[in-house]
Simulated assay, not measured.
Amino acid sequence: MTEWSTFLPDESATVAAGARLGRAMGAGGDLLTVHLCGDLGAGKTTFTRGVLSYFGHSGAVKSPTYTLVEVYELPARTVYHFDLYRLGDPEELEYMGIRDYFVPGSVSLIEWPSRGEGVLPPPDLVATLKVQDGGRIVKLEASSDAGAALIERIKTDE
Results as ranks from 00 to 15, higher is better:
V34S: 06
Y95N: 01
Y66A: 14
A60Y: 03
R23A: 15
I137S: 03
R153C: 07
G118L: 05
S108P: 00
R77M: 07
P75S: 13
V61N: 07
T78G: 11
L68H: 13
I137H: 03
S106M: 01
R136M: 08
G118V: 06
E91A: 13
I98M: 01
S108F: 00
A60G: 13
L31C: 13
V119H: 05
V138C: 14
G41W: 03
V103S: 03
E11Q: 13
A148Q: 07
I151C: 09
D10W: 03
G22I: 04
R23P: 01
G38Q: 11
I137L: 15
L93Q: 08
G135A: 11
R49F: 00
T48K: 07
G26R: 10
L21S: 11
R153N: 08
Y95K: 00
E73H: 14
G28Q: 07
V119A: 05
H81L: 07
S106C: 13
S144E: 03
K130D: 02
G29I: 02
G50W: 06
V119E: 05
L129Y: 02
L93P: 02
G147L: 02
A148I: 09
H57G: 12
Y80K: 11
L125Y: 03
G88D: 12
H57W: 15
Q132A: 13
L84F: 04
E73Y: 08
E117G: 11
I137R: 15
P122F: 00
P123H: 07
A19L: 02
Y66T: 13
E117R: 12
G56W: 04
A17K: 07
L8Y: 10
S108N: 04
W4I: 15
G105Y: 01
A24W: 04
G59A: 08
F47R: 08
V69L: 14
G116R: 08
G118H: 10
E117H: 06
A24F: 06
P113K: 09
G28W: 02
I110N: 08
V103Q: 15
D145I: 03
K155Y: 01
P123K: 11
